[in-house]
Amino acid sequence: MAFRKLQVLGIFLTIISLHSEANTERCDSLTINGGSNSFPYFYRNGSGHFGIVGDTVITASNRIAIKPVMGNKAPWKRILFDLKNGNIDVVAGTLKTKEREKLFFFSSPVYYSEYHIFVRKNSAFKFNALEDLKGRRGIKIRGMSLGQELDEYAFENLVIEEVTDTDSLFKMVAAKRVDFGIFYLQSGFDELKRLKLNESLIALPHPLTQQPLYVAFSKKSRCPEAIQHLSAEIDLMKKDGSAQAIADRYAEQISNARPASYTRPVNDERVIHNHE
């Protein structure tokens, strides 16, 4: 009888061991994605670098021996859908809203995003406050948040349509189908150059908004402990200067992305700094 009990105990311990090993194998990697054409925050250029927030997440993953697996390029709304349903574990670079907090966990702020108004050069208008957009038609990427307060203001007071990609966004502005487009400043310049619209469209100098960017984690991730470790490691990178060093490496690229004709307002604060 004693031998039988030991045999059963051995089988039980073996099952527990195998189950533990299976969990370890299942959680030695995290699937990561981010918004397309979001330089310098997240982007893909085949170099092995993925922007300030993307590189921060990848570096943090490597530091805790978790393999970062980059997901396929997809529309922003699809990426958020996949994060919500646990198809991916991490999104590198997103704004935090009340609605998103119901769906995702968030890191502390990693960097700042800077949205600008893009208009036709021959139809530029003065923009210093949100009220200046009233009576005009705008456009942005579907699913893109501009920050909690601005989202609420826009819903109540502005007309802003949505499209799935930057090609449609800038082409609709150029074709006079809308009065302005909203996009990231740096990557917006790159997109205009790619589309050969950099001579006809410009960015208004005053930022629409500057918002903290976060890393978002799926509440349905198969690896909750791994994403907790990753979030903690991102905090350590901010404290030891590693996150700032990544941002600094992009400073020259950011400067070069701006056309010579672009001038930042005198009182406009630079957003490239380590936020605690």
Score class of each variant (00 low, 15 high):
residue 160 I to T: 09
residue 85 N to K: 15
residue 144 M to R: 15
residue 82 D to W: 10
residue 82 D to L: 12
residue 158 L to R: 02
residue 200 S to G: 07
residue 110 V to S: 04
residue 127 F to C: 09
residue 115 Y to D: 08
residue 195 L to D: 00
residue 197 L to P: 05
residue 94 T to R: 08
residue 88 I to N: 03
residue 158 L to G: 02
residue 121 K to S: 10
residue 176 K to S: 14
residue 107 S to F: 01
residue 99 E to V: 07
residue 167 D to M: 10
residue 136 R to K: 15
residue 146 L to C: 00
residue 153 Y to Q: 04
residue 154 A to H: 07
residue 118 F to E: 00
residue 198 N to G: 11
residue 131 E to A: 15
residue 90 V to M: 04
residue 152 E to A: 13
residue 89 D to S: 05
residue 151 D to K: 05
residue 150 L to Q: 08
residue 109 P to D: 07
residue 134 K to T: 11
residue 176 K to T: 10
residue 131 E to H: 13
residue 79 I to D: 08
residue 113 S to H: 07
residue 112 Y to G: 01
residue 130 L to H: 08
residue 197 L to K: 06
residue 194 R to G: 00
residue 119 V to N: 03
residue 134 K to Y: 08
residue 192 L to W: 01
residue 121 K to M: 04
residue 182 I to E: 01
residue 197 L to D: 01
residue 93 G to K: 08
residue 116 H to D: 00
residue 158 L to H: 06
residue 177 R to S: 11
residue 95 L to A: 09
residue 140 K to F: 01
residue 84 K to G: 08
residue 87 N to Y: 14
residue 111 Y to W: 12
residue 137 R to Y: 13
residue 166 T to C: 08
residue 116 H to W: 04
residue 196 K to Q: 15
residue 132 D to I: 01
residue 110 V to Q: 10
residue 190 D to N: 15
residue 187 S to H: 11
residue 195 L to E: 06
residue 203 A to D: 00
residue 174 A to Q: 12
residue 120 R to N: 13
residue 143 G to Q: 07
residue 179 D to W: 05
residue 124 A to G: 10
residue 168 S to Y: 07
residue 191 E to G: 03
residue 117 I to K: 11
residue 200 S to V: 09
residue 189 F to M: 10
residue 107 S to W: 03
residue 138 G to Y: 06
residue 154 A to M: 10
residue 108 S to A: 15
residue 84 K to F: 09
residue 194 R to Y: 07
residue 80 L to P: 00
residue 133 L to N: 07
residue 195 L to Y: 02
residue 102 K to F: 05
residue 120 R to E: 10
residue 117 I to L: 13
residue 152 E to R: 13
residue 128 N to S: 14
residue 136 R to I: 07
residue 132 D to M: 05
residue 83 L to I: 06
residue 156 E to K: 15
residue 90 V to E: 03
residue 180 F to E: 03
residue 167 D to E: 15
residue 190 D to S: 12
residue 141 I to P: 00
residue 99 E to R: 11
residue 188 G to A: 08
residue 130 L to W: 10
residue 143 G to D: 03
residue 107 S to I: 01
residue 115 Y to L: 11
residue 139 I to N: 02
residue 94 T to D: 12
residue 193 K to G: 02
residue 154 A to I: 11
residue 190 D to K: 14
residue 194 R to N: 09
residue 155 F to M: 12
residue 92 A to W: 03
residue 97 T to R: 08
residue 162 E to M: 08
residue 170 F to G: 00
residue 103 L to T: 07
residue 164 T to D: 14
residue 91 V to R: 04
residue 168 S to P: 02
residue 157 N to S: 14
residue 170 F to C: 04
residue 89 D to H: 06
residue 111 Y to N: 10
